[in-house]
């Protein structure tokens, strides 16, 4: 379904591939898990962009992004950009896959494992900085960056918590998570009951029509 200029698509994939492999290189802790996934091929169709691409994990570990692949992937996922963004950011990828808008064909195990490895990547900036700037300056800059990232992460979590508290407790603009989950469960149960009732009505109508035909 890909209708983009192959050269443009190759440029985008080349850039993304380099960035991802650069990140992998700087996270030695992820290498073992990625090596275990070596040989995995995942097909991804982004419906909103009319784009199909393939993600292949090779020994090294190395990640390859392809716009054309003739092998049948063990896992194929289809969804919009928003669906994939939700999956990448999710704390519980299995639940996001089941409840989100992503359509999955084949095995989900490798996809979930890859999402977990990527989300747990802890990039070690010190090695490339020391290599370029020397031991002292490189270490100092890496420490400063680490502090900055720690502060940023703390600030993000704090802001998220405060915003959530404001929306729930003070503004009373959104219902609590548990209440919302209960509501969704209710909606899902109702939807299933309606579906069953509809099926029964259709069955009864079919029976009635058959009886009329016999008379």
């Amino acid at each position: 379904m890909t209708q983009h200029d192959p050269a443009l698509l190759s440029a985008a994939l080349y850039g993304a591939e380099r960035a991802l492999n650069g990140a992998i290189l700087l996270t030695p802790t992820s290498h073992h898990a990625l090596e275990e996934l070596s040989g995995t091929l995942i097909g991804v169709e982004v419906t909103s962009l009319q784009l199909t691409l393939y993600l292949a994990l090779a020994p090294g570990p190395e990640l390859r992004l392809l716009s054309h692949c003739e092998e049948k992937p063990a896992t194929f996922v289809r969804g919009s950009v928003e669906d994939f963004a939700a999956l990448i950011a999710s704390d519980d990828p299995a639940a996001t896959l089941i409840n989100g808008g992503i359509e999955l064909q084949g095995s989900s195990a490798s996809l979930i494992r890859l999402q977990q490895v990527i989300s747990q990547m802890d990039i070690d900036w010190e090695a490339p900085l020391v290599e370029r700037l020397g031991d002292v300056a490189g270490h100092q800059l890496a420490e400063s960056l680490r502090s900055l990232f720690r502060w940023g992460e703390g600030a993000r979590k704090s802001l998220q918590r405060q915003l959530s508290e404001y929306l729930l407790e003070e503004g009373r603009l959104t219902p609590p998570k548990l209440e919302l989950e209960h509501f969704f469960e209710g909606v899902q149960t109702l939807s299933m009951q309606v579906e069953r009732a509809q099926f029964k009505v259709e069955k009864l109508l079919a029976k009635a029509a058959a009886r009329r035909d016999r008379q």
């Binding site: 050269a7 440029a11 080349y14 716009s67 054309h68």
Partner: peptide, 15 residues
């Protein structure tokens, strides 16, 4: 530098 992208796609098509 675009010739590298053309070649990259050619390699993909080679399978």
């Amino acid at each position: 530098g675009i010739h590298r992208l053309w070649k990259r796609f050619t390699i993909e098509l080679s399978a």
